[in-house]
């Protein structure tokens, strides 16, 4: 606490620190006593008395302690503050908004992700709104006709054994007749596909002929049948005891049954078991040529189930 440590001389007289120290010593006070009265720590005051203003984070604090000293020892306040201003080039408190870059970067990433998501959503919406063609890839539309013909050849004798149902009597002579029955004679039958006519609904089991899909309802059930292009062939609440028959169906068909256990499905007189496709009594499945072929190969089974 000897003088001569600062070497900073303000205007020919004492420095601020020297002046403060002299005032304190003239009253016979230790720096600790002053620190206690100002409720601060000794190191700060010692630094102040040595003209070292670095422990003060802002000029306002240093000036505050200078004022505290001035009032405690009845020193001229304004003079000391002026001395302080002269000695210490008080670092101006730099006010600046906090940097916001990290958040912004993240935000751009987020918007990128948002854009990708929106694009995906748009693509999904377009796909959804397009005509419903679930089997387009697996079963190109053009394959339909020859496949139907092949099957016809398979079961050719069945056609002859059973008389055609009423209203479809002569396929060859009525080109506008129902599509499924005209396949036997016309190659381009694939282009027309219309649901089974009303007259065909009450067909008796005995009339079951080749290449026919028959749905028999033991109880009331909702039924939907669509062809490979998504066209609705059947869409109704079928009453119990009803039968719905499709002659020469253009496979594959998409079938949905609301009360699956109450419906027996027969294809060419062979029972198709839809139970593996059913969930909570609702069956939703695609009846395609693969299934049909598999059923054809089970000759032995068919004999027993078709027995009426």
């Amino acid at each position: 606490m000897q003088d001569g440590q600062t070497g900073h001389d303000a205007g020919g007289g004492e420095t601020l620190g020297q002046r403060l120290r002299r005032a304190r010593e003239s009253q016979g006070l230790e720096v600790e006593a002053v620190a206690e009265r100002l409720h601060t720590d000794v190191t700060r005051l010692k630094a102040l008395e040595h003209d070292d203003f670095s422990p003060f984070p802002a000029a306002v604090f240093a000036r505050g302690y200078v004022r505290g000293y001035a009032r405690m020892f009845s020193l001229p306040e304004a003079e000391l503050i002026a001395l302080y201003e002269k000695q210490a080039a008080p670092p101006a408190v730099s006010l600046h908004p906090l940097p916001a870059t990290p958040y912004d970067k993240k935000a751009t990433l987020l918007t990128m992700a948002g854009r990708v998501f929106a694009l995906a959503l748009l693509a999904g919406a377009v796909f959804w709104l397009m005509p419903y063609t679930p089997w387009r890839d697996e079963h190109p539309a053009l394959n339909g006709a020859p496949a139907a013909l092949n099957e016809e050849a398979h079961s050719g004798e069945d056609i002859q054994s059973a008389p055609p149902p009423a209203g479809m009597a002569d396929d060859a002579e009525s080109p506008d007749a129902d599509a499924f029955s005209s396949v036997s004679t016309r190659q381009d039958a694939a282009v027309s596909e219309r649901p089974v006519s009303e007259s065909a609904q009450n067909v008796s089991p005995a009339e079951t002929s080749g290449d026919a899909l028959v749905l028999r309802f033991n109880a009331e059930s909702w039924v939907e049948v669509y062809d490979q292009r998504g066209k609705t062939l059947l869409y109704e609440l079928a009453p119990g005891g009803a039968t719905r028959r499709f002659e020469q169906p253009q496979l594959p068909l998409r079938v949905r049954l609301g009360n699956s256990p109450a419906v027996n499905i027969e294809y060419n007189g062979k029972v198709f078991d839809q139970s593996p496709h059913a969930r909570n009594s609702v069956a939703d499945f695609v009846f395609d040529r693969k299934i049909a072929a598999a059923m054809q190969s089970r000759e032995d089974d068919a004999v027993s189930v078709t027995a009426e």
């Binding site: 802002a58 408190v93 730099s94």
Partner: peptide, 11 residues
């Protein structure tokens, strides 16, 4: 701000 406090610091 007016008093010159270093308010931008994490103190």
């Amino acid at each position: 701000i007016g008093a010159g406090l270093p308010i931008g610091e994490a103190r």
